[in-house]
Design a protein around this nucleic acid. Structure first.
Lengths: 113, 113
DNA sequence: TTATTATTCAACCATTTGGTTGAATAATAA
DNA sequence: TTATTATTCAACCAAATGGTTGAATAATAA
């Protein structure tokens, strides 16, 4: 039967479950890139990258801007908010990982400055 | 060809991409439960839930304790740390979601008290 | 105009996923 | 012992995933 309906949260988590797609996000964090530029970093066909971008797009993790024959891709982190919130709600910092939480907050503070 | 190697981070994100599995985690957050108890909350076969538990197990999100014919399941949040870290690193709080970050930190503080 | 370039679409393929049902196993209760 | 209960395993199925190659499209360069 497979999946009838998929929420954005489903799509975000699914999009992030693939190392190639996380690699794409890591690249796009730095700068806006075209599909071809992106594809050059990965050991697979251009078309495969194009498909991965489609997956990221459906999770709304991508902003695409068309300029002539170039498709400029930019990472949109916004949908990750819900994912982080979901996790933070279920993450049992207090029993198992209090140090990690502290580190995590320190990390956030550093970035903030 | 499909997937050759999968990292734990891959498995954690993939495990969380399914609403049934997130539902299982939500349940297990409250208390340790047997497979049958869990299955009763979901509109699908017992065996399907058993399969979902296997997926959670492979992502190490589950602690299973066998007691007689019961399999007691407990949520293990530890692997989510890496996922939260990965996201926080790529989450662009400062440009788009400063308010969400503040809310997020407030939320954490509330839990802490 | 023609060739090249950037990108997507389509068809294909093998594997995985998410469900089903039925049988097997193993512990407990009668 | 026998029946019941909790759980898993196995076989099956349809759909999704992640890759491929080749053709189509559309913009730019020669």
């Amino acid at each position: 039967m497979a999946k009838a309906y998929t929420s954005r949260l489903d799509r975000v988590f699914a999009a992030l479950s693939d190392p190639t797609r996380r690699g794409i996000i890591a690249q796009l964090r730095e700068e806006e890139m075209s599909v071809l530029e992106l594809a050059e970093s990965f050991d697979m066909s251009f078309q495969a990258i194009s498909k991965h971008l489609k997956v990221l797009d459906k999770a709304e993790l991508l902003h695409r801007r068309k300029e002539g024959r170039y498709q400029w891709c930019k990472f949109n982190s916004e949908p990750m908010a819900d994912a982080v919130k979901w996790m933070s709600f279920h993450y049992d910092f207090w029993k198992e990982s209090f140090n990690s939480l502290e580190q995590f907050l320190d990390q956030l503070k550093e970035k903030e400055e």
